[in-house]
Design a protein around this nucleic acid. Structure first.
Lengths: 190, 190
DNA sequence: TGTTAAAACGAACGATCGTGCTATTTTATG
DNA sequence: CATAAAATAGCACGATCGTTCGTTTTAACA
């Protein structure tokens, strides 16, 4: 907020609010009118920052990925033992799903399912971010279990997080967290 | 097409097409105009079969659940050994995700994530169907591993299916199926 | 087959969508 | 402080949304 031009500052404000809105309504339900009203901006004033709605959606997804990196991924660098990073990552991920700064669920997971069959730039952006996430987890899995099956473990870990998201947010299952953590431990004792 | 009244027949046609459309666009992206055009119906003629769009969405979800039961769940009754049903169920599920009769992915999983934070009848219907599915898997898990942790296993199995869906449809990962099946086997050797 | 009810249509509605244009306000800079 | 540039507002557009209503076509049944 210091030496950023005014335009870049509002742009950032817009994207932050867009991520929050998309976390509830989904990227497809992200609409310009209500977003502008939330921010006290005019529709056209907001729109001028982006060339199209699709661009807004893509940038919103990018911003969500930044948030995820900041809150979940980056802090793991402080853990010296690479073998311990998978568990730390997963716990941070679950905590992030349970209560991030967002009103709704994880926009990246949501977009991954929402746009899996809808071609276009949003699909591509979702694939990019999800692919990066998946590769990162494979790396963690390899470090955690050098003689294991890192790809299979990564698939199970990703899925467990998705399953957790649904049990918490859709089903409001209060045992979800405990069940998820037990399931995760079971994944590691192979 | 035998002793069904004309209205019920078109109603069924509408819902079948709606499930297919929703499997691609999502339940939120399911829109009356294009759906009517696909069927060679007028918008108003189609709409007359439902009291509201929300009702159409709920019935579409119900129809998708019926389809899932027919293709995946029901055939399992033929397996006498209950301990073997979990694996059979999962393999059928994965096969269904890979190529069902639908153009897109599983509408129930999609709706579960799309409407997890959006209150209303569609949210409730998604929760109902997903909850039933989850309870069914817990039952299979208990039969497969009587001394295990059925809820944790069920959570892992559900998640693995969701992860598979994304790796297949979004990432177009050709190794997805093999990885998923290896991961599933690993879940069972605990 | 003639009558009646059901089903589908056509047109229109108010609302909202994304998106341009032009004017006005605000910011940055000499 | 003046001025150029950037940022925002206001307004309108065509399109599409869900929905209603009156009419016409079609199916069910005596």
């Amino acid at each position: 907020m210091i030496d950023l031009a005014k335009g870049d500052r509002t742009r950032a404000r817009i994207l932050d609010e867009a991520v929050d809105l998309a976390s509830v309504q989904g990227l497809g339900g992200l609409t310009i009118g209500p977003l502008a009203e939330r921010l006290g901006l005019s529709k056209s004033g907001l729109f001028a920052h982006f060339q199209s709605k699709e661009a807004l959606q893509v940038e919103t997804l990018d911003r969500a990925a930044d948030l995820f990196r900041t809150d979940v991924t980056e802090p793991l660098r402080a853990i010296p033992d690479r073998a311990l990073r998978l568990r730390a990552f997963f716990e941070r991920w679950i905590a992030w799903l349970d209560d991030s700064r967002l009103s709704g669920g994880c926009p990246i997971l949501a977009a991954a399912i929402e746009f899996d069959d809808v071609p276009g730039p949003v699909h591509d952006a979702a694939a990019k971010h999800f692919g990066e996430l998946q590769r990162l987890i494979v790396k963690f899995a390899r470090a955690a279990q050098p003689d294991g099956d890192p790809e299979a473990l990564a698939a199970a870990v990703t899925g467990l997080a998705m399953s957790h998201l649904v049990r918490v947010r859709l089903l409001a299952d209060r045992k979800a967290r405990a069940v998820t953590l037990r399931a995760f431990e079971a994944l590691l004792v192979t």
